[in-house]
């Protein structure tokens, strides 16, 4: 499955919704994410991919948005780093 497919499933699972409801440009806050949903989702994604995503909740200031596609880009960047370092 693609990174997008896995991330979409995790996001949908977090909200108890159908994965088909989510596109790359789906805004997580608009979809119903609250403060703890973001960090729980990041944790689940890290576990699935065996990566660590460098994300500080203070950088996502209140009111700023994050999409499913943003998550996919974070994962792909970490996967690329992992590939390059061979870890």
């Amino acid at each position: 499955m693609s990174t997008f497919g896995i991330v979409r499933d995790v996001v949908a699972g977090q909200l108890g919704r159908n994965p088909g409801d989510f596109q790359s440009d789906t805004d997580l806050t608009e979809a119903g994410f609250e403060s703890l949903d973001v960090i729980e989702t990041l944790f689940a994604i890290e576990e699935k991919f065996g990566i660590a995503i460098n994300y500080n909740a203070n950088e996502g200031l209140a009111g700023s948005s994050m999409t499913v596609g943003d998550l996919v880009r974070m994962v792909d960047a970490e996967l690329e780093k992992k590939r390059q370092t061979g870890q």
Partner: peptide, 20 residues
Amino acid sequence: EALRVLSSDTCRPFSKNRNG
């Protein structure tokens, strides 16, 4: 750390550059 609210350098309350 898992809550992702810790600063990496120092605590700067009410400062624009605060980061945790």
